[in-house]
Amino acid sequence: MTFFDETSEAVKTEPTQVYISQQWKYEPSPLINCGFDPSGNYVFGTARDFALVRFSLADGAQKVYKGHESWSRGMAFTHDGQHIITGGCDDKIIWWNVNDEAEAPAPVRTVEAHKGWVRALAISPDGTLLASGGNDNMVRIWNVSDGALVREMSGHVKDVYSVFFHPSGEFLMSGDLAGQVKQWETATGNEVRNFDSKDLHTYNGGQKVDYGGVRSITMSPDNNMIAFSGLYKATNPLGAVNEPLITLFDWEKGEKVKSLVMDNVKGILWRAEFHREGYILGASGGSGGGVLGFWKPEEEKAFHQLKMPDTAVEMDLHPDGVQVATVHYDRHLRISRLEKKPEEPAKEG
């Protein structure tokens, strides 16, 4: 989801110094998803009261957009920065104006997208296509400019949890509840191959439930590795007893090369993202609370973890590569910074 700012001078981050710099509370409801707009001026959150909330990074000022008839999990931004697109559990995809200053911002465009929740959205690298995945096991591609359906792909046998465009734009990846990740050819919709990340799925025979899924997909800056996040060790799915997991695959070979785990954390790794500096960061939430984790791809265990004040349910990385947004059950959107915390000036007297 992140649009790195290629024009500005990149700041070298210090993930082991990460700290929470700001937090804003959305009073009406716990939050579900979050994302920085390409300009980096705003961070948007979706909430359990069906709202889309725009937070100004400058001062935390909030603008509420209402239009979905349910929760929304999918979120993407057009490359021109004009529109945010949300995908809801009401089966709809809605386009909104990022800079809408109306008292009650209205949807720009609404598309009935899936028979079942829209769980994930992604914009193609050239900015022309929008991909969606939903509970009807379908993956669909839409024109960003007019919302027209371009093509649809079937093949998943469980709910589609995540979608991600390969940085070349040539391929679209989609991950499902069963831990299967399909590689589609964007131009044709043909399935190229399947990545079997079954470690991210559990069927519990005692409780008779499927659990887990590919919650997010990310790719290394050199495009040699692709990573999927979610959970494993799900000994009690109904009781939230599970641990966060990243499965790392070699892109060329399509083979799993490593599992990345957290130290003594119970939860789901809702999102993982490769930072442009080559490490992976991710947000875990669950019975172990909220934790930001940082991994080197070559090491199994996280090299740093930051315990957060409340369980986290989503994460996004700012275009500057320094700020990280997380949303939480306690209705807060928090901004963490991947650098050393400035020293507070000494108090006089």
Binding site: Q207, D210, Y211, P237, G239, S287
Partner: peptide, 17 residues
Amino acid sequence: HSNYDTHNENFNFHLEQ
């Protein structure tokens, strides 16, 4: 029919069950 003791991910599990 089992199982509905959904302390976690109530909505995903009710969707399935």
